[in-house]
Design a protein around this nucleic acid. Structure first.
Lengths: 201, 201
DNA sequence: CTTGCATTTTACCGAACGGTCAACTAGTAT
DNA sequence: ATACTAGTTGACCGTTCGGTAAAATGCAAG
């Protein structure tokens, strides 16, 4: 059982950086197996298909984020709007450190996969959508708290949260197009200027 | 010569919707040739490689956009900020009509390709970056005009333009994740709330 | 009528693709 | 000791991948 889970996690560990730095279609199972030191038959003992592997990779990344600096950013001890600053900062430094090691801006794996596969695989699309929905909730809760504490004027927290998430993904996209994390640094802070007013009742 | 250009443009015409609705890696040259009624040897007479084909496809899309509703949106006769409204509207209706025909939100082909290939091919990345740079300029010029006419308070037009472009791409990304163009309708108008102030001199 | 060139056809290349299968190994429970 | 099972191995499936080369075709200028 130990050895078993080890094989499985070695596969995932080999797949993660590859899917992140290239694309879903461009990474083959053979390559992953070679890198993980695993036979292809063994791969298919743990994963029924390539899609199931990428599903597991998405889960690992989501977990890594949620318990990592996303948890730090959305620390209830911080003033609400500072959490958003923190998140942008963290995204910037993360992308920057990846570029220093890897030579390239890799961007957000969820965004990358979304644009690549969501027209071709509804199961993957649903998985990625769930990730975004969770992220959206973090923004929404933060905005609601900021409004209730009179830190910002009232607004439509749900819609503004979605807008902020969209903006973050868009900034990462443009940064990737320029292969330059500094785009995040320049454009990121403007996320707090986004506002969607509450609909008149 | 007529027949020649016809073959070439039939290839591009077959490739365009496929790269848009799926992805770069997922569309094969064989499929494109079959759909265009062209032999593979003939394909390689006109395009040295698959990359050169997608380069041509990007050019065609860029041309189609620039002379289509992007030209309409950035009509100098319109008040500057209304041009941005128009662009959002046009993007929404375009995505919506595609979904009605195709069943899926396909999003922005430039954004799609950027996230898929820009870590793997610097020539493609440069091409896509050039498209974004042109789009950014349209936004910037519009903002500069709005500022000079006292329609909006002074701001950093170049940075705000980039932020707006990022936001647009991000909104399209989220809409694609939900396979729902209405996301564009809900979030799009907030693009005008984005602001990046001029740096203190 | 022929030379030359652009285009097209056809057959082919080796490599990689995702996935399958049957045989084998090893540890555990009875 | 035996039977069962989770895990592993390595060979193999048909298909597709991007790309190549040579021969055939059509056409236009000399």
């Amino acid at each position: 059982m130990n050895i078993a889970t080890d094989t499985r996690s070695r596969i995932i560990a080999a797949a993660k950086p590859r899917f992140h730095s290239r694309s879903y279609a461009n990474v083959g199972i053979q390559e992953i197996c070679e890198s993980a030191g695993v036979q292809k038959g063994s791969f298919y003992h743990f994963f029924p298909s390539k899609r199931d592997l990428v599903l597991a990779v998405i889960d690992e990344y989501a977990e890594e984020w949620a318990s990592g600096f996303v948890a730090e950013a959305f620390d209830p001890a911080l003033p609400p709007m500072e959490r958003i600053d923190y998140l942008i900062d963290a995204a910037y430094f993360w992308q920057k450190s990846i570029k220093e090691v890897h030579g390239r801006m890799l961007g957000c794996i969820f965004g990358n996969l979304t644009l690549e596969v969501s027209t071709q695989d509804d199961i993957l699309r649903a998985k990625l959508l769930a990730i975004f929905t969770r992220a959206k909730s973090r923004f929404r809760e933060t905005l609601e708290e900021a409004v209730s504490k009179d830190i910002i004027p009232p607004l439509d927290a749900a819609l503004t949260a979605e807008a902020m998430l969209a903006y973050l993904e868009g900034v990462i996209l443009l940064a990737k197009a320029q292969n330059d994390p500094d785009v995040l640094y320049r454009l990121g802070p403007a996320i707090k200027t986004l506002r969607i007013e509450t609909m008149a009742p």
